[in-house]
Design a protein around this nucleic acid. Structure first.
Length: 288
DNA sequence: GCCAGCCTGTTG
DNA sequence: CAACAGGCTGGC
């Protein structure tokens, strides 16, 4: 489910409630979703900051007495993971796998991690030990930061020259946080067919694509994410970027630009949505 | 590079 | 009932 804009929205919705709160107890109902690097204690900790990197939510934990950095809590939502701030005493839902019991200004509340498909993961690491998680350690640049330069993107394009542009954008080591929705939307907005081979893109197309990725992610955050069914932020609020989608899940409907029927195909093993007219297949230089 | 497999729920 | 779903990993 959550891609970068959704994780960022979850982070923003939870930050005012969680920063400064004390984690009193951590209950694990389904151990498969949880891992702990060493025998680091589960509680108590003070939640100091909420950060996001790609599709990961990172919570910095400190000792409640000394304030010393004590641990790192990593959350990856995969397809259907959710983190919800709930009133004390709320019975855990059917697919709640972890319950964090917290207090803030003396008032108790809980934070539940639930995930129907159980693909999501929560892990507790030593402080400053982001590199212990292979997925987090290998992430490419943050697309909305200055780190994601055109030169860096072009270099990655040379490294992955023979694959499809769709697979390139979904590769988290190339750029962090792009998933299926924002990938299809960015490709539409840059007029590039997802099945194009990376080495057929001109430098100009690469620049357009990078700009489109940034634009679409920023817009997604502005609309508080995309909700089809599952996704809600940390307080249970839906997103509304689904209203702005040009191609994603619009197969059979007319292109908002040219009226051509949107098609759905499989590229990089994922459902992929295109306007065959706005996103012609072929490298655009008409040679053979 | 590609794709099956991980899970459960929903949709056609 | 089979196909599919917003992600990622590991085995080829």
């Amino acid at each position: 489910m959550p891609e970068l804009p959704e994780v960022e929205t979850i982070r923003r919705s939870l930050a005012p409630h969680l920063t400064g709160a004390v984690l009193r107890e951590l209950r694990i109902f389904h151990p498969v979703v949880f891992s702990r690097h060493d025998d680091r204690r589960l509680a108590p900790w003070r939640l100091v900051a909420l950060r996001r990197r790609g599709k990961y939510l990172i919570i910095d934990l400190a000792d409640p007495e000394s304030g010393e950095p004590g641990a790192l809590l990593l959350i990856h939502f995969r397809m259907t993971g959710k983190l919800l701030c709930l009133a004390e005493g709320t019975p855990p839902a059917k697919h709640t796998h972890i319950r964090f019991s917290l207090t803030r200004d003396g008032k108790p509340f809980c934070l539940d991690f639930n995930d129907v498909r159980r693909f999501g993961r929560v892990s507790l690491l030593p402080p400053f030990a982001e590199t212990l998680d292979p997925g987090l350690a290998s992430l490419g640049p943050e697309p909305l930061s200055d780190d994601w330069t055109l030169d860096r993107f072009l270099e990655q394009m040379r490294r992955h020259a023979r694959t499809t542009v769709k697979a390139l954008l979904l590769n988290q080591t190339v750029v962090a946080g792009v998933g299926n929705i924002y990938c299809d939307e960015a490709l539409f907005r840059s007029g590039i067919h997802p099945a194009r081979r990376v080495n057929t893109l001109s430098d100009e197309e690469a620049r357009l694509l990078r700009d489109a990725v940034r634009h679409v992610l920023a817009e997604g955050i502005g609309h508080r994410g995309t909700t089809f069914r599952d996704y809600v932020d940390g307080l249970g609020a839906r997103g509304f970027f689904q209203q702005e989608l040009q191609v994603f899940r619009r197969e059979g409907k007319p292109c908002r630009t040219c009226g051509t029927v949107i098609e759905k195909l499989t590229v990089a093993g994922r459902g992929t949505h295109v306007c065959p007219v706005c996103q012609p297949l072929g490298d655009g230089t008409s040679h053979n």
